[in-house]
Design a protein around this nucleic acid. Structure first.
Lengths: 361, 361
DNA sequence: ATGTGATGTGGGAACGGTCCCACAGAAGAA
DNA sequence: TTCTTCTGTGGGACCGTTCCCACATCACAT
């Protein structure tokens, strides 16, 4: 090696003790700050530690403590890179900061939905707990359950009442979105809906429809609505276009494919079950010269930064990513500490963020 | 605990061996897959492992191997959450995937520029190597150097020739941006420049100016240009507005503050030293009714997803985040393996991505 | 004087693996 | 037959900590 420094990479407690002229046990007491040590000895050990740039091995500590103070975070994805996803990126950011303040470090992995690889890896790493982000298949949960390791699920979907999960109140958010658009006078709605298997998308849609129905606008279940509109697009007040995934591109494609229906249907409001879908749809409208919000209002969901930057800026429903990330760590921390009575479900209220795309300036 | 499963959390090799009726050594040989073991014994051990759901402890392994197969990634920031930053998010994503394929796991931390906390933590975790992302202060590098641990720097800034770093060729990218705008006929440029201390911003700007000068448009050093334009804004072909940070908001504020100058100066092209600044500036123009690109062309840098989604979509210069992330891990892997002759500087060529904001459709 | 408690220090087992070495038995070569 | 080599197995040291326990010293009350 061409290293100019002749410093060893890592010194052990034994070497440190030797230099300070004390026993291993004594050195340990000083370094860990627990137990008796005279001022004289303490000083000698600290000086030696300074000199050797001693760093206690977390590995050895974990070995004896049977505790790593590490948390494994697995973000599941279908195909695409996921950390750069604005919402998940935010959640990861919040997890990182919350973990820091509680003394945990984060092992981060992304993995495909059905894979157990990452989970296995985390288990072998002996993480104290697991945070599973985004949706993932049931087999993953069932697998994790086999090992008595604390875990929480963030923004996923499960009917399993045993699983501790944190989600935003998507149904209520959907209702709020409907209220907002209705209150602006809109009566004919075009919905760009994300994949129905995904809890968030499905609940946002059903909340939206539920509220519309309450307000006297027929919408009903997705199936019914789609049946209606597919056959007689002009007949419904609400048109639901379903997208196979939840990307910007899908929103774009979907709107392009439905351009004729949109124009002839007299729809004045577009609701996307997330910001990306909404923005994709909005871009198509803007390119066709539709003025937003004068000719058509557009609304999304997630409150991603992107939406606020757009022109026109996008009205949306905010998801409390900060709360989600923070509480995921806090909850897991309690579970790791063996605390009983951790709530199985934590829901975050959502809030409409009104911007240019529905209200102009 | 209200755990329904009576399964122990983790079994040890000793317990496994006991169940299989062999010695610890033999069990180890089977599990690690190295060394002799008869078919009969192998089967018995594997069956026992299955039954106990045995997971070898990476902690214990790391202990004896003096090797963790973990890599520490520290992303430095000033104030804000950083993983959700589109460019750094992408880089983290790529690092994650590259690490996976080389058998490493990632410890992720974000930290303030001058702090040594995270670095210390990584050192204690005995990571095999360190990836330092974004700019950070010299003291961090000097500190890391003290410990003979392999490390690489991604997209940072340093004059230290010893440090292995991976950067995009920002100067050349700046030149390319200038070429592109010039070739479209633009002669009067308004530049929204990010913080000068940051290597990327500074090089992008100087590359841009250098090329303009070559093309016969006076631009010169930032100071000279600013001196010129501050006093007599109308005199220069190039106006450089400098921003204290590199956010969307800064771009927005800056353009608002210079609205009068922009209008009266006859500028037909805006260049932001990153996408966020460019988009912030562009949003102001759009809100004022300036047509992009007919009245003014706008160009950014980074090729963030956001830019492609905007309306009009943003012409930009792409940074090879994939290459950056992938090679950071690959290079570090070589260094960990003790391989000599690792290049000190790896530069990634940049590429102009032409979109609507400069060329219409 | 003699117990008693606080203070300070060191010895050594334990954590869960890997790996070197010793050794036993069988097969093949001399 | 005897020597060598290959195959298969177990014993035990070791990695770097923590922590329990034993022990020594000293002050102070009895």
């Amino acid at each position: 090696m061409e290293n100019r420094s002749d410093h060893k990479l890592n010194y052990s407690l034994r070497e440190l003790a030797q230099l300070a002229g004390v026993s291993k046990s004594t050195a340990s007491r000083v370094i860990s700050g627990s137990g008796y040590a005279s001022a004289d000895v303490r000083e000698r050990v600290l000086k030696a530690a300074e000199e050797l740039r001693y760093k206690p091995s977390a590995v050895a500590r974990a070995m004896v403590a049977k505790r790593t103070h590490n948390i494994g975070v697995i973000v599941f994805r279908d195909r695409l890179p996921i950390v750069s996803h604005t919402l998940y990126g935010k959640i990861v950011d919040e997890i990182l900061m919350a973990a820091e303040s509680l003394g945990y470090s984060i092992f981060l992995k992304t993995d495909r939905e059905m894979s157990l690889r990452s989970t296995d890896y985390m288990l072998e790493q002996r993480v104290d707990g697991l945070i599973l982000v985004s949706r993932f298949r049931k087999n993953v949960i069932d697998y994790v359950k086999n090992f008595n390791i604390p875990y929480v699920m963030v923004n996923g979907s499960t009917e399993d009442p045993e699983v501790v999960h944190l989600v935003s109140d998507d149904e209520r958010g959907g209702e709020r979105a409907a209220e907002h658009l209705y209150s602006l006078g809109h009566r004919r709605f075009f919905i760009v809906a994300g994949p129905g298997e995904h809890r968030s998308h499905s609940l946002r849609l059903s909340g939206f429809c539920k509220k519309l129905t309450e307000l006297g606008i027929p919408c009903g279940s997705r199936e019914a609505a789609n049946g209606l509109t597919a056959d007689t697009p002009q007949a419904g007040y609400v048109y639901i276009a379903e997208s196979p995934d939840s990307s910007f591109d899908s929103g774009l494609q979907l709107m392009r494919a439905h351009e004729e229906i949109f124009r002839s249907g007299g729809y004045t409001a577009v609701f996307g079950t997330n910001d990306m879908l909404a923005l994709g749809a909005m871009k198509v409208l803007l390119e066709r010269g539709v003025r937003v919000p004068q000719d058509a209002a557009v609304m999304g969901y997630d409150n991603t930064e992107l939406g606020g930057m757009y022109h026109p800026s996008l009205t949306t429903v905010s998801v409390d990513a900060e709360g989600l990330g923070r509480d995921a760590v806090a909850t897991l921390h309690k579970m790791i500490g063996g605390e009983a009575g951790v709530p199985r479900l934590i829901e975050y209220d959502s809030q409409v963020i009104i911007r240019q795309s529905t209200k102009g300036e």
